[in-house]
Nucleic acid binder design. Structure first.
Lengths: 217, 217
DNA sequence: TTCCTCGGAGAGTGGCACTATCCAAGCATG
DNA sequence: CATGCTTGGATAGTGCCACTCTCCGAGGAA
């Protein structure tokens, strides 16, 4: 298939496909002559993944490239590749080292992780972007005066642990290793809007229950 | 307090504060002369909220303005104000009407909401941005070939419902109505990075359990 | 009086995700 | 073989966004 057809099948403009090729998000097609290349289903699929990451997951282009590179790095073992692929995923801003609120937030998070029994000392532990984002978010909540001690975070952590089990189950359904890595990336990113949307809908529902006449229905 | 001091206390540059004033994100100070204005703690607090929304919550400036305006609109009742404030919050792209995957995704989501017994027919129902984002995300998952029927989404929805209860409990702790509205916005947005970070950490933990030697520990 | 700072306004900056334009090489048709 | 259209590749430009810079005249302070 030619670039034009790839564009049609994926719904991505040729200009954007060329851009992705240049940026290394899409593997080059099989060169068939000096001026033509051949693409196949793997390109269509990759394009859909990239679009989903960028549009739904709001992953920056440069980051998407890193994630894909990590997913394809065959020198890592399975657990590491799963971790490496999500390692590069975008997170919030880093906590400010000098901020006392950030320091307090860091202690809270450490205590929380200890409390739920998660590893904090490994390669995927304290240094992970997710950990630092968590600290920054807790610090912001504290600065605004909202309570977020271990007790408040614990229900969130427990629910996250439950989600992880169902997510990993889903990932393990994939027959091939490459499929599992892709699934890890895709499901990590694409279930995020699902989760956040459901949370907001649930807020609305719960608010209706508490604050409107028809609430108890 | 003068602009310079407000900048110091909030950690936001004077240029940015002026920008926020122009954009209507920060209420103007009390004019004390033709060239000077007086700010107070409410400005510091608002600035911290705005920064948290924009930096951590990645809320666009224009959207943040709408959210704040909705939170301050005293013509709405309590439930509506809670909803209106989060109504304007940013979501993903809209689902494509003509896409058969999107249509199927819409049916799945409707079935899901029915299954968990949430209202789908109210002012905060089918038309909400969260609902449409959910449909778009499910459609993207389907396009990539990942299963996400009602059965797959159900655990997420149940967990979201649990989160909503704890979130609303936290909101109701605020003594004043204005405080509750602000808390609704702040907690909705700021617990999102918390939740997503915890989920990623939980993924890493669960992956370690399953795929490394020390896993069973 | 002199100088410094303040608040306000408009233009400018940098980053990002594309997107429009150009080009030369093919391939396809007569 | 000539002609014209398409293809892939490279470069420069666009639009948006969140600031940020620069200038200005009016106050306030020494």
């Amino acid at each position: 298939m030619r670039l034009a057809e790839l564009s049609e099948q994926s719904g991505v403009s040729t200009a954007t496909i060329k851009y992705y090729l240049r940026e290394g998000l899409l593997q080059p097609g099989r060169r068939v002559s000096a001026t033509q290349a051949e693409y196949d289903d793997t390109h269509v699929r990759r394009l859909r993944l990239v679009r989903a990451l960028i549009q739904l997951g709001k992953v920056p282009v440069a980051t998407a490239r890193e994630v894909i590179a990590a997913a394809e790095d065959e020198s890592l073992d399975h657990h590491l590749r799963l971790g490496a692929a999500t390692w590069a995923l975008p997170t919030g801003p880093e906590p400010d080292e000098d901020d006392p609120e950030a320091a307090a937030a860091g202690r809270t998070v450490t205590a929380l992780l200890e409390h739920v029994g998660w590893r904090t000392d490994q390669e995927l532990g304290e240094l992970s972007p997710a950990y630092r984002t968590l600290v920054a978010a807790v610090a912001a909540l504290r600065r605004l005066g909202y309570p977020c001690g271990v007790a408040h975070l614990l229900p969130y952590a427990r629910l996250a642990a439950q989600l992880a089990v169902t997510d990993l189950d889903l990932i393990e359904e994939q027959p091939t290793e490459a499929g599992q890595i892709e699934a890890a990336v895709a499901l990590t990113v694409l279930y995020e809007p699902v989760l956040l949307s459901l949370r907001r809908l649930a807020h609305s529902e719960e608010s209706a229950r508490r604050f409107t006449d028809a609430g108890g229905a």
